[in-house]
């Protein structure tokens, strides 16, 4: 469904991603893990059109999408849930939800979709007419996910859904995402810092550090967590280990 090859992104002289290859099949839940600053968010931004890569290719359902504007990529059926709960604070929950459909040519299904999504996110129904800025963190995260789903994406990119949320709420968010995948045939690509959670919720895992994919495999093969920890923290690389140990 999504195929990335040799992706390289630089911010000025800093290399954020180098030679990244990644693929996602339809209806998979794929996790990208890595420490802060590994390049996870840059990877998502590159797919969604938010940054311009220096090299590489990104194809979605056989069609190259690299270089398209973000709003056009969104219209192809890729929806990004950005990191940090970007709600439209002064708009109501209702208005937030429908924004994504306003740019679409066909909006007949919007009301029914909202109704369906409120089944998955009942808290939003309670807050329907309130400004989104007044919701709690967990509610905002759910609103952003629900809003992203209103454009009827086939691929949902979720950037660090667990950031700054209580563990119990994070579990709710993941469970909702997985039931959406099961029941609405959604494909998921999720950035995550916690390897424990990703082992529970994903089919395949990519470990990324310093802008490179260091490890990739099916979740059940990596179940013991040993290989992931090594790639994540760089224990198998003496130079890196020394770097990590330095104060």
């Amino acid at each position: 469904m999504l195929e990335i090859k040799g992706l390289a992104v630089s911010y000025g002289a800093t290399t954020a991603l180098a030679g990244v290859a990644l693929h996602v099949e339809a209806q998979e839940a794929v996790c990208v893990v890595g420490p802060n600053g590994a390049g996870k968010s840059t990877l998502m931004a590159a797919i969604a059109g938010g940054v311009s890569p220096r090299a590489g290719s990104i194809t979605y359902e056989g069609k190259p999408i690299l270089g398209m504007r973000p709003e056009n990529i969104a219209r192809q059926g890729i929806s990004l849930v950005p990191e940090g709960r970007h709600v439209f604070g002064t708009l109501t929950v209702e208005e937030n939800l429908f924004i994504g459909t306003y740019a679409m040519a066909d909006r007949r299904h919007a009301a029914a979709d909202a109704e369906m999504l409120l089944g998955y996110f009942p808290r939003l129904k309670e807050r329907w007419r309130q400004p989104a800025g007044r919701l709690s963190g967990g509610e905002q995260q759910m609103l952003v996910i629900a809003r992203a789903l209103m454009t009827r994406p086939r691929l949902l990119l979720v950037d660090e859904p667990s950031l700054g949320l209580a563990p119990k709420i994070v579990d709710t968010v993941y469970e909702t995402l997985l039931s959406l995948r099961r029941e609405r045939q959604l494909t998921l690509l999720i950035n995550e810092q916690s390897s424990e959670r990703m082992l529970r919720f994903s089919d395949r895992i990519y470990v990324i550090r310093n802008g490179r994919i260091l490890l990739h495999g099916r979740t059940e093969e990596l179940r013991d967590g040993e290989a992931i920890a090594r790639a994540y923290f760089g224990f198998d690389d003496k130079a890196d280990a020394a770097l990590e140990a330095a104060p």
């Binding site: 439209f88 429908f98 994504g100 809003r147």
Partner: peptide
């Protein structure tokens, strides 16, 4: 509404196809 959304959060507005 799309304009007010872009005022509140430009990144998210573009991600919503605005």
């Amino acid at each position: 509404l799309m304009l007010r959304a872009s005022r509140d959060d430009g990144v998210a507005a573009r991600a919503s196809g605005v």
